[in-house]
Every structure is written in C-alpha cells, then in structure tokens.
Amino acid sequence: MSCAEPDQTLDQVQPGQSCRILRLTAAGSIRQRLLDMGLLPGRRIQLVRLAPLGDPLEVRLDAGDSFVAIRRQEAFHITVTLEACTPSR
C-alpha cells in the first residue's frame, strides 16, 4: 500500500500502520455503532494487530488508551488514508 493510492478501507491496512478515518460507508446501526465507539471521520487510528486467524482486527484510537476490535466485514465500511500519505498539518 503506497501513497499512490492513499484511500483504502481499513481491512486493507497492515498491522502497525497508522491512518486517518476519511468516511464511513455504512448506514444504520453499523454506522451508529462505529461512531459511538469513537471511530469518527477525522480520527487517527492505528491497526495494532490481527486475531490469530486474521479476523477480527484490533485498532487503537488517537494513540490513546482506547482499543477496539472490529471484524473485517465492518472494517470494510471505514475508508481511511494512510498516515504517511496525509499532508502534515
């Protein structure tokens, strides 16, 4: 994954990589649940690890103390841009 194609879904991100949430492509309860757990557009998240069988994923919010596990199926609804690709602010 290079910055040539900066926008990807969260399930494509590799463990250890950090990214910023661009948008959520889910509606209804999935969207609400993601938002409630703090997965808001603009948030910086890091993919910490994958479960032993590759699914679900664990992400860390805002480099803080919040860790959230999420299935690939739901991670697919989160469009992100890799941290390295974000122009520094």
């Binding site: 509606a27 557009p41 690939r72």
Partner: peptide
C-alpha cells in the same frame, strides 16, 4: 465474498478535511 456496502447511504456525511 465480502458484500460491497451500498455507497448510496443517504448522506454524503463526512468531513474530508479530517480535522478533529
């Protein structure tokens, strides 16, 4: 297969600028 979510969610809904 993973079902591609309908992108036709009622809302455009997201800030692209990404500032918290």
């Amino acid at each position: 297969r993973m079902v591609k979510p309908g992108l036709a969610t009622a809302s455009p809904g997201d800030r692209a600028d990404g500032s918290p």
